[in-house]
Design a protein around this nucleic acid. Structure first.
Lengths: 233, 233
DNA sequence: TACCCCAATTTTGTCGGACATAATAGACTT
DNA sequence: AAGTCTATTATGTCCGACAAAATTGGGGTA
């Protein structure tokens, strides 16, 4: 069976738009279009590729959704560097994603925050540590509303992402915020088992200042224990 | 300044297609369309929303690119559960992404692999350990071609992702493979400093079998030392 | 009756043309 | 020279039509 089918070439079922899309992409790569360069008008492309403007428009729409180009009304389109995260954003509607996926994304976040310890330790600056201490100082007490605590939690962890110097990760975190909001509220995860905080924010800062990456990883794992407990029960 | 502008409502610059897109999404959510359900024909939608089919088509194209629907030629479209990773895939062309982003994605991968230790330890099965041992047994020797070594590397780490039971992470890894290929070949990262392997694959398996999450995290960090060294020089 | 082939129908894909609207540039006025 | 108006240009929106592919149903044949 395998043998018989081996030599048969795939039938090209791609539509015209598919081909134009590929065509445009390779065109941009070949011609070494730089970010900011304007791309030809729809009509020109239509004529030079020998297809209707409809097809061009649909292909360009795809490129735009891929983040490869950006177009302003009545002013044409320019090449942009695709930002993976903003691409994700478009389909990151918590109401649409299924629950399993949401849970998995949550797990990814935990993995990331533990694993990024090395980048934090490598790149943290004295100013960063000051900022973190400032954040901890203004930490809302347990008695405060949950909303404030969550807000602070986000600010603190957001700062950690920032320290990594990794823009993609940072954007990833911002992108995920609405998802976590949703996960927390929707009862997708079991309720918090207890409010005991293992390693506190202050403890983390202390390790960032005086410890090493390994200590930070383990401390972060402990800090996130509540979340893990909810996942593993 | 801030004060003056505060009360001014945003002007709605959204195009017709934008509105239709939102309309369709909320329609699907309200009507509680399930995965696999067929959605109305383009013409029906056009008539019932009072816009042209062109607009409907463009809006549906967006939904398709978001992974919310899937349409087969001449057979209509059905609801699907958006798969974040496949969305990403469309714009994950290494030639298009800029170098900084590629490097950052590489860093994310390292973070993930270290941070996922807890999920591995929690969910690993006896069979998984057997599989890992089998993989290690057939590990190509140093003398082998680099290609084989990389292939094996991918297989081993792929298995680790699989053990996490987290489909999103696993897909994420598969998605990133071409990127790493590119990163390795393009000299984006400094060359390997030395071929000394810190913790070997066999060592990792041993820890998965007998150790705990903390040990695995640290071992994984050591295992990836070559990559970190290239980043941090 | 059961099966296969062919035609009619349905639906999406592609096309060309048309007008609307917004941005730009150039001509005109003061 | 500065500002205003107008002509041009490009994209956004819409329409009607045909093409091509998949489905459906019917009719003929064994």
């Amino acid at each position: 069976m395998e043998k018989l089918l081996a030599g048969i070439p795939m039938i090209d079922t791609s539509s015209l738009v598919d081909k134009v899309e590929q065509n445009l992409i390779s065109l941009f790569i070949e011609k070494e279009f730089q970010v900011g360069d304007a791309i030809p008008k729809e009509l020109e492309l239509a004529q030079s590729l020998g297809v209707s403007r409809t097809v061009i428009r649909e292909a360009m729409l795809r490129l735009r959704l891929m983040g490869l180009i950006e177009s302003k009304k009545h002013r044409g389109a320019v090449i942009t560097s695709p930002d993976l995260v903003s691409v994700l954003q478009k389909s990151m509607n918590p109401k649409i994603l299924n629950k399993e996926t949401l849970k998995e994304i949550f797990e990814m976040r935990l993995s990331l925050e533990i694993g990024m310890a090395d980048f934090i330790m490598e790149r943290v600056s004295a100013q960063d540590i000051q900022d973190l201490k400032e954040l901890v100082k203004h930490e809302p007490p347990r008695s405060e509303k949950l909303l404030f605590q969550i807000e602070h939690e986000i600010a603190f962890h957001g700062k950690l992402y920032e320290i990594t110097g990794n823009e993609t990760m940072k954007k990833f975190q911002r992108l995920l915020l609405p998802v976590f909001d949703y996960v927390h509220q929707s009862g997708l995860l079991k309720k918090l088992v207890d409010n005991q905080s293992y390693v506190s924010h202050g403890g983390l800062v202390d390790i960032i200042e005086n410890g090493d990456a390994e200590k930070l990883r383990n401390a972060m794992r402990s800090h996130l224990e509540n979340h893990f407990a909810r996942l593993f029960d």
